[in-house]
Amino acid sequence: MYQFNYQRPKSLADAEALLAAADDPKILAGGQTLIPTLKQRLAMPSDLIDIGAIKELDFIRAEGNAVTIGAATRHATVAQSADVRKHNPALAALAGGIGDPAVRHMGTLGGSIANNDPAADYPAACLALDAKIHTTKRLIEADEFFKGMFETALQDGEIIKEVTFPHPEKAAYMKFPNPASRYAMVGVFVSKGPWGVRVAVTGAGQNGVFRVAEMEQALSKNWSPDAVAGIKVSANGLNADLHGTAEYRAHLITVMAKRAVAAAG
């Protein structure tokens, strides 16, 4: 790891001030991606602003027709939350399937979506559940948030505060994990709610998470696994690596979508 200055603010306001004052800062949330990245010397921030001690970012609140989760809330906390399990069991299950137990004890919702790893799970949930991402500066719709591989709409000095997930009527997430890394080769989140039907795919796209319009239309007419079974997703723009070709991933999208619809009931 290269050297950096380390700061551990106790409030969001202090964190913003530290971010603004630093040369080339990075926000440290759970660190489950950032620390390994720093260890490999793939990043050289001047300052790490650790938001792990900011209590106001760690909460889960169910109100109205939505659950709002603080950005520094750990995956394990989301997975175990009675509110999330009751109103949005697919989201709880997704959180409980990220990484492994030790990673889930540290990794956070805000960290996951700010990093926007193309194989991360939470971006699929945000996109499929029409999530609202609240930052220190504004509200960003999930559709506008994920801009490409490791790229988001966040600006310098902007911190994610919380994410609001409206309750779905039906939803499920199905992941086909890489047998070694356990990251999603393909993960498909399907949902039905006030926003209509959404199908979001992670793990497969070169530019990160994306929606599949053809599947959404088919499921809007007929919510059943059969409705997506015949839909072939184009391999254009999908990842190809030693673990699988783009065609293989395209095929997996249909298979996982079918399973997700079946699981959502």
Binding site: G31, D50, P101
Partner: peptide, 21 residues
Amino acid sequence: GACVVHVDGRAVKSCAMLAVQ
């Protein structure tokens, strides 16, 4: 996972956490 320890009662990987955290 060879480096797992408990921090405030929760299992974490101590190679993916800074001492200052």
